[in-house]
Design a protein around this nucleic acid. Structure first.
Length: 264
DNA sequence: AATATTGTTCAGCA
DNA sequence: GTGCTGAACAATAT
């Protein structure tokens, strides 16, 4: 699940639950996921602190504790958070637990271990070092910034939308959705897309991310004519009566309605 | 059994 | 050096 809208929901969840609660301790259950920080260092630093502030950039969630210590969570393909009291409610595949003085725990679960747990004292430096492009849902991400991020790329437009170094936040599901709703074939070359179409693409991106967050990324609550509700081979396209097909682009499955998504 | 799955990274190639 | 593609990574589900 975790693309930008999912991570935004995780951020709000953390804000509504674990923020400002006193941290009694923490436990990194699986050191495989640690990136650039040792288990001892992270556990020692968290001890006795509180999360004071959160931030999201693309698919990364940052939670500040202490003066300038940030816990960084990336959710890979299967990560999520759960704030719970009873140990019975601990999710399967919990890789990190943070224990609060009020008896609650924040669990970070990640079945497929493709997520990352790290630490930084500067979010800006982390974003820089990671080579992340601007957050594609930020107020500052204007149409001009979008145009610049796409650049004059040679490859398929879907690959550029998903390239975190150009703009951060979109993954396989939402890049498909954006292209589906704008009627652009995912293999279209970026350079062949004219300004008017690019503007349509930009607007669709902003709208779709907003709708996804508003609906709490619950697919059943998405409008019925969204691709996400019909994301399987052979499904009927609710916009034109065509048939949804699957194809490989940059090693990922792209779902497309070839009847109304034209290659340009 | 084979193949699928929302993510990133890195080798290989043009 | 640049930029793109596809395999690899891990753990299931179908």
């Amino acid at each position: 699940m975790p693309e930008l809208p999912d991570v935004e929901i995780f951020k709000r969840y953390l804000d509504a639950t674990a923020l400002r609660k006193k941290i009694k301790g923490s436990n990194v259950h699986d050191a495989d996921l640690l990136d650039g920080v040792s288990r001892q260092k992270l556990q020692r630093r968290l001890h006795g602190e509180r999360f004071r502030d959160t931030h999201r950039h693309g698919k990364f969630l940052f939670a500040r504790f202490g003066a300038s210590d940030w816990l960084i969570l990336h959710f890979g393909m299967t990560g999520f958070l759960k704030y719970h009291k009873n140990s019975d409610d601990t999710p399967d595949h919990t890789r990190l637990t943070i224990d609060f003085a009020n008896g609650y725990h924040l669990a970070y679960s990640c079945q497929r271990k493709l997520g990352k747990i790290s630490h930084t004292d500067s979010v800006d430096h982390f974003i820089e070092n990671q080579g992340l492009g601007p957050d594609c849902y930020s107020d500052r991400f204007s149409f001009e910034a979008f145009t610049q991020a796409l650049g004059h790329r040679s490859g398929a437009v879907k690959s550029s939308l998903m390239n975190q170094n150009r703009m951060a936040g979109l993954g396989n599901i939402y890049s498909d959705e954006i292209l589906y709703q704008t009627g652009i074939h995912p293999e279209s070359a970026v350079t062949r897309i004219d300004e008017e179409t690019r503007r349509t693409l930009y607007r669709a991106m902003r709208r779709i991310v907003r709708v996804a967050i508003d609906r709490r990324v619950t697919p059943e609550d998405f409008p019925r004519n969204y691709l996400i509700r019909h994301r399987e081979e052979g499904a009927g396209c609710p916009r034109c009566g065509g048939t949804i097909t699957r194809m490989k682009i940059s090693g990922r499955s792209a779902y497309v309605c070839p009847y109304h998504q034209e290659k340009v």
